[in-house]
Nucleic acid binder design. Structure first.
Lengths: 224, 224
DNA sequence: AAGAATAGATCTACTG
DNA sequence: CTCAGTAGATCTATTC
């Protein structure tokens, strides 16, 4: 998929130097990711294609695993902050975050805590030096209140101005391709939360609607 | 209801002095709140009584309103952080937070931002000086992943140790009464997310189960 | 009336 | 196998 990047707290420098190899791996995973779509079950838009978090999540995890990235358990003294990061390798933590928007800060806060603690958590081989957060663009039709790139960018931008966070963060946005049609995986699930999908590769026409809150345009996605 | 309190960043001092009247109002609201219960719709515990966020939220908002507390819109420059705080009066902001746990940090981060900005947001009459967060105890049976007091306390405790937040926070926990039976409102809704309830006051037996993650005991609630 | 956005509600999936 | 707990999914309600 096509991506956009925003860097905070020196992460451009970090991923351009020390973290170069880690980023190359994640960039490769993202580059090879096919957009995942599913049918909405929301009143008023039943059946319309929306971004599929389950399919995306599963594929990111599998592909990152192949590159040596593993779930990173939250250490005991940070237990209140949850169970694990979605992936970690070397000195870099990563989250794919497509759930509701407040998870952004849950992810950042606990990453900041581990960053400041300098603890080495398996599978990391050194204290965490940076965090990668993968989101989808707000251009994607999606379930209500799921986090999106432009929103995350605006929030992190404001808070880093406050100067309370130090951990370098590379925010990634999965973008709707500018070229129509788009080839995407169409995932059909047995139930609303089921993880097992029947997947077919299909073509979708993209049309661009008016601009939204953060200047990004909404994309309407129609099956061919 | 019975409550517990945890103070961070000097909020004990604040609510004992400058913020005394504001706290007296909220304490009164909480004191007069009847526990709100509803039937779970979760597989494996269908029909069992759980904490009712909708009923609790609605009653807190109405009672706080009667004491002059109003929704506080997020100002334009903090727009990425959402629409509003649940309540505000004078120089104090309040949230009733019974949704999923990451909202805790969404609430705190945006409050910290407004605290540092020193902006005066309607209906506040001065820059925000403190934040009250009302949660329920983890002793309550509840929907999965809804925020609970002991979890919030542990997280805030860790993060205030990092020294990145300055806004005084009073965290409130709505507790399961130690005396059985408990009188509570039993709310029946037309649908899973419906806000209109048919309410009856009923008695519930409380039995205490084994301790959980943060040392609090789980309460089993049985209709008489 | 329809659309967009946040807030809140609250489930299933998965793991220890 | 059940229970507890987090993660993630994703809806409806409400307001603008």
């Amino acid at each position: 998929m096509q991506i956009e990047i925003r860097d905070f707290n020196g992460s451009a420098e970090y991923f351009g130097t020390t973290g170069h190899q880690r980023w190359a791996e994640i960039a490769d995973v993202l580059d090879n990711l096919t957009p995942q779509l599913q049918a909405s079950d929301q009143a008023g838009k039943i059946g319309r294609p929306i971004f599929d978090p389950k399919g995306t999540n599963a594929r990111l995890t599998v592909a990152a695993d192949a590159a040596g990235w593993r779930k990173a358990p939250v250490p005991g003294d940070l237990r209140p902050f949850g169970k694990d990061w979605d992936a970690g390798k070397g000195a870099v933590l990563a989250e794919w975050q497509f759930s509701n928007y407040p998870f952004l800060w849950n992810n950042i806060i606990r990453s900041e805590a581990i960053f400041q603690s300098k603890a080495v958590v398996a599978p990391l081989t050194a204290p965490a030096e940076a965090l990668i957060i993968v989101t989808k663009s707000g251009s994607f039709p999606a379930s209500n209140s799921t986090l999106y790139f432009e929103q995350a960018n605006a929030q992190i931008d404001t808070v880093t101005t406050l100067g309370v966070f130090e951990i370098p963060i590379r925010l990634v946005g999965l973008m709707v391709p500018k070229t129509s049609p788009m080839e995407a995986a169409w995932n059909v699930y047995a139930g609303r939360y089921a993880r097992e999908a029947q997947t077919t590769i299909r073509q979708f026409d993209i049309t661009w609607m008016k601009s939204t809150q953060y200047g990004n345009q909404a994309a309407a996605i129609h099956p061919r």
